[in-house]
Design a protein around this nucleic acid. Structure first.
Lengths: 306, 306
DNA sequence: TGCTATCGATAACCCAAAGTTATTGATGAG
DNA sequence: CTCATCAATAACTTTGGGTTATCGATAGCA
C-alpha cells in the first residue's frame, strides 16, 4: 500500500481540530470515511498517529513528528501545482508571496510592479494566510517570501526587513457608544469584550493590546481566524478590535467605525524570507521591496497614525 | 480533481525513460493505464507535460519545470515515510544518509557508531543511490547528508569535506587474460571494452579513466546503473571497469578479479551536505565524520593503494 | 448509580475510477 | 509500399473510498 496525498490531507485536518466529526465536515466527507482513512494511514506508516477515545483525540509523539513532515509534503505538492499554473501561463519562473490581511497596504502593488518590471518572466502568486500562521507560509515552504507583521516568534531560519510603519486604530460597530468619540484611550476599553485572533500567543496578545492593559485580563467576545471573520464579529457587536490603520482604507464597510487610540503602539509590516531558501528570485523580491520603501537606510515608510 | 502522488510517480517515471511502454512496465501497470493517468495529470495541472507522437516522447518546457517540483514533492513524501518509520521504532529524531556504492568503506560503521553514541535518540536511515545520482539524494532532499565521491558538478548549494582517499583498481572477470597480471597500465586497456556507469558526464568519464587515455575513445561494453549491475556485466565478460580499491573487500565474489593499475589516480570519498539544509543534526553528523577520519587537519584517511 | 449526549468504530452496501486486454491509427525505417 | 513500433481509444472488470445506519464506550449529571 502506498502513501497518498489524500491521507496526508485528512491527517492534517484531524490534527488541526483534534475532532473526527468536525474535520470530516471540513473535508466534505463523512466521519466513518475519515476514521477508516486515518486507520489506513496508520497502517501505511506503521505507527499510531492519534491516541483516541470516544471523548478525546490527541496526537501521539510519532504523530507530532509526522505532522511536521506531512505539512511540508503538502506544501511541496501545492508548490508543484503553483509552478504548473505558472507554466500554463507561459511563465517559466514562479514565486509564491505569502501575506496576512492587507499585506503592506498601498505599497504592495508598487513592490509587485517594481519586481515585475525587472522579472517579466516570473509569475507571482499572492497567497493569503489566516492569523494562525503569522509567518504566512514561510514556516513550511508554502510561500517563498512573505509580507508579515511582527511580533514573530524568534526563529533563526527566518529573516525580515521592515517595510512599513503605521499606527493601530480601534475598529468597532458604528452603533457602539464609543464610535462617536474622535479618540479613545486603552483604559476606556479595559472592560470591553475584544475579538481575539486565533494565533500564536505573541501575535494574539499584540493585537489584543495586552502590553497596554497594565495586567488587566481581556474579555474575549469572539475568536476569529481571518480578517473577514473579524469584521463580521465586530459588525455583529460581539466585540471590538485593534487593527492597522490602513484597514480604514481596505476594509471600510457599512456599519463599521474606526477610532484613534491615544498612546497605542503602532504596527510594522515587513518582507520576510527563509534564510535557507534565499534563491536569487527571493533576494530580488526583497531588494525590490527595499527599493520601494527605502528601508535600506533603516527607515521604513511611515504612514500617518490616523 | 485533486493532485495525487501516484500521478507524480507516473509522471516522473515517464519523464525518466521517455517511453510509455517501458515506464509502464517499471511501474507494473499496463501502457494504456499509464497513458490515461498522464492525461489526467495534464488535466489536473492544466498544462501539457509531454509532447508525444507515436514515435517520440519529450518533455515540454512546462514539463521540465514541473518535473523538478514533482521530484521534490516525492522526496518530501518519502521523507514523511522515513520519519514515520523512525517514530515507529521509538526514535524521535531522524537522519537520512545517502550513499553510493560502499560509501566510505570501513569508515562508515565507525562514523555511524560515533554519531550514534552522541545521539542515541536519532534514527539513521542509510539510503543507497544509483550512479545516476552521484549527489546521493542531496539534490532534491532525498537525503539530509551523504557520502559521495567527487568529481561532482560544482554546485554552490552543496558543500563537502573529504573523508577517505583510496586508490583505484581494475575489476575484471578472472577468466580475462589480464587477470593474471600483478599490475597493468592504462595503455594496455585502451582497446578493452569498458562497463560504463549511467551517470552525469564528469562522473562517468572519471570512472572510465578518460583523463588517462590520452584522448583515445572508450569502447563501451555495457551500461549499468548500480554496483551489482556493474559486477554482473564484468562477470559475464561484457567489459572491464575501474573501481575504488575498497571494492576488493566489499564486492569480492567468485569469478571476479582485481588488478592494480599503475599511474591511475585515486578516488576520494567525502561527506557532503546542503548548505541550505544544514540542521544541527547534519552538522553533528559531519563533525562525527571529521572526527573519525581526522580530516579536519586536511588529511583524509589514506588506504594503501592495493 | 443509572440516564443521556457525544463521538469514534464497525458493518453493509454503492459507485467512481484505476486497472485490464484487445484494437486502432499514426509514423519512421527499409 | 510495407512493416514494426508505440501511443491512444474502447469495452470491460475490480478495487477501494464513499455513503448511511448502527454500535459501544465514556464523561457529565441528577
Amino acid at each position: 500500500m502506498e502513501l497518498d496525498l489524500r491521507l496526508l490531507r485528512y491527517f492534517v485536518a484531524v490534527a488541526q481540530d483534534l475532532h473526527f466529526g468536525r474535520a470530516a465536515a471540513r473535508l466534505h466527507i463523512s466521519q466513518p470515511a475519515l476514521s477508516v482513512q486515518i486507520r489506513k494511514l496508520e497502517h501505511v506508516l506503521g505507527v499510531e498517529v492519534f491516541r483516541r477515545t470516544s471523548r478525546h483525540v490527541e496526537l501521539t509523539p510519532a504523530g507530532q513528528a509526522i505532522l511536521a513532515e506531512a505539512t511540508r509534503t503538502l506544501a511541496a505538492a501545492e508548490r508543484t501545482m503553483a509552478v504548473a499554473r505558472s507554466a500554463a501561463r507561459g511563465k517559466p519562473g514562479h514565486l509564491t508571496v505569502g501575506f496576512v490581511a492587507n499585506a503592506v497596504a498601498e505599497l504592495t502593488p508598487v513592490i509587485l510592479e517594481e519586481f515585475g518590471r525587472r522579472h517579466p518572466h516570473v509569475d507571482i502568486q499572492m497567497k493569503q494566510f489566516a492569523f494562525a500562521d503569522p509567518l504566512a507560509g514561510l514556516g513550511n515552504g508554502d510561500a517563498d517570501v512573505a509580507f508579515v507583521r511582527p511580533p514573530l516568534r524568534p526563529d533563526p531560519a527566518i529573516e525580515w526587513c521592515p517595510v512599513l510603519d503605521e499606527g493601530r486604530v480601534l475598529i468597532l460597530s458604528e452603533r457602539h457608544p464609543l464610535a462617536q468619540y474622535p479618540a479613545v484611550t486603552v483604559e476606556m476599553l479595559i472592560n470591553e469584550p475584544f475579538v481575539a485572533r486565533r494565533a500564536p500567543d505573541e501575535w494574539r496578545d499584540f493585537w489584543l493590546g495586552v502590553d497596554h492593559r497594565d495586567g488587566h485580563a481581556v474579555r474575549i467576545g469572539a475568536e476569529v481566524s481571518t480578517v473577514d471573520e473579524c469584521l463580521e464579529a465586530v459588525l455583529t457587536g460581539q466585540g471590538i478590535a485593534f487593527t492597522q490603520s490602513s484597514s480604514q482604507r481596505y476594509y471600510s464597510r457599512p456599519g463599521l467605525a474606526f477610532v484613534a487610540v491615544k498612546g497605542l503602539s503602532g504596527s510594522t509590516a515587513a518582507v520576510a524570507w527563509r534564510r535557507d531558501a534565499a534563491t536569487p528570485l527571493v533576494n530580488e523580491f526583497v531588494t525590490a521591496a527595499q527599493n520601494v520603501c527605502r528601508c535600506h537606510n533603516g527607515a521604513p515608510t511611515q504612514f500617518p497614525l490616523r
